[in-house]
Simulated scan of single mutants.
Amino acid sequence: MRTRTPAAVLAAATALCLVPAAFPVAAAESDSARLLGTYVVPHDLQVDGTPVGGLSSVDYDRRSGDFVFVSDDWSDYAPARYYRATASVTEDGVGDVTFTGARIFRRPGGTTYPTIDTWREEQHRTPRALRNVMGTVDPEELRVDPLSGDVAWTNEGQRNVPADGSARGTVLLDPALRISHRDGWYVRDLPTAPNEKMTMGETGPRVNETFEGLAYTADGMRIVSALEGPLEQDGPPANADHGAFSRITVHDRAGRPIAQHAYPVEPLFAQPQPPNDWNTNGISSLLADEQPGRFLALERGYAAGVGTKGRIFEFSTDGADDVIDRHSLADGGFRPVQKKLLVDLDEIGLPHTDNVEGISWGPRLPTGERVLLVVSDNNFSTRQQTQLIAIAVP
């Protein structure tokens, strides 16, 4: 999610939810993870005539050896796109990072995506509410298909309903899971669960709290998506007093939703200052482990006047109830996924944690540890950084 916030809260974020007291989170052992190093992408870096910024996900393409990064630019700074890059990641940290090219996303007819403001102006001339999912995009997570080499990516969608509730000018842009070729040309959209469609009212996804997480399982036969925060009917978003339940959806190879699980998101790590100022906490990235049914989730929170926190949790869907047909999670009565803390970015020696939004596996080290790469979204602000953080985990 790219935030549009005042300068005072430019260390922006997303919305997350937490584990109620009934579902305690296991703590990570102090020596379970260690910082290898960081790399900061220059703010003024240009690649193929586009500004490198708003990076909200990272993934490794094992076919080419490239890393890929999606920008959550609504086409404001350049057409919606993702980047390819080479990077040296070793036990000594992150070495040279070279962005080798931008890949522009294309609509079915081959055109680029317009800005959301341009698209909204077009809709205001229309006497009905529109759901044109190809109208504009807010990319958030991108993964390389391990079997085909295509890229799967998420569009967070939008809901914009006039104060009078009229159809004219209403924008209902459903969140989407989209497949593109490596060059950015459109292939198809994947089906999404019925409860993940935008509505006019009190059900469905919250704006800016939809598809932040996406992952292929190691064998490529499943694709798993994650909502950043709770559906409207699942209860209020997480804050410093309580957590919330997001939803993790498992799709088959064709994209059909086959199961959905409740994920307990943490409460916000601190009260914003002042207490009623802007704050948010939610799932910003999802990553599959090699073992079936096991995943990592990056939870990123922001409290105005305090800052940003990033925590990576390991969780398993084994034993969790399927809630795809459950209208609301607000009243409980189900088994959520079980999770434990793997890495708290504040506890591994990072001098500064920015708006972390993406995680990926990197190489395996001679020690047997695996590298986790974390990327932060600078929101195209000179007050923030695009960090690439390398962490060694067992």
Rank of each mutant, 00 (worst) to 15 (best):
S225T: 15
A254P: 00
R256D: 11
E232M: 12
V207W: 11
L214H: 03
G255N: 05
R247M: 13
A218D: 10
G255R: 04
R253S: 07
P237T: 09
F211T: 05
A259H: 11
G255P: 01
D252M: 07
Y216Q: 06
G255W: 07
L231V: 04
R256E: 09
R247E: 10
G213T: 08
G255Q: 06
D252I: 08
A226M: 15
I223N: 03
G220M: 01
L227H: 09
G220K: 00
N208Q: 13
G235K: 02
R247F: 15
I248V: 14
N208G: 02
D234T: 06
L214E: 02
E228R: 11
F211V: 06
L214C: 06
A226L: 11
T249W: 00
F211E: 08
L214F: 04
A254H: 12
L231M: 15
E212I: 11
G229W: 04
Q233C: 08
L231N: 09
Q233E: 15
A238Q: 06
L231S: 07
R222M: 13
V250E: 14
T249N: 03
E228T: 06
G213L: 06
G235N: 03
A244C: 09
R256H: 14
H242Y: 13
A240H: 14
D219I: 05
D219P: 07
A215Y: 00
A238C: 08
D234E: 08
L214I: 15
V250M: 14
G255H: 09
F211W: 15
E232I: 01
A218L: 11
F211D: 04
I223S: 04
L214N: 03
G235Q: 01
V250C: 07
R206K: 14
I248L: 14
R222K: 15
G235V: 01
Y216G: 04
I258Y: 08
F245A: 02
F211I: 07
T217N: 03
L227K: 02
R256M: 11
Y216L: 10
A244V: 10
H242I: 13
R247C: 12
V224E: 00
V250R: 13
V224M: 05
P237F: 13
H251Y: 10
E228P: 06
D241M: 15
E228M: 07
V250F: 09
G243E: 05
H242C: 07
G220W: 01
F245K: 00
N239Q: 09
L227M: 13
V250K: 08
A226V: 00
D252Y: 12
E212L: 12
L214K: 02
D241Q: 14
I248A: 03
A254F: 15
P230E: 02
M221C: 05
G243Y: 01
Y216H: 15
G243H: 01
F245T: 00
E212Y: 13
H251M: 10
T217H: 04
E209Q: 11
Q233P: 06
V207S: 10
N239C: 10
R256V: 13
A226W: 01
F245P: 00
E209G: 08
I223T: 10
H251E: 03
P257L: 10
A240F: 08
M221F: 11
S246K: 04
M221N: 14
P236N: 10
R206P: 05
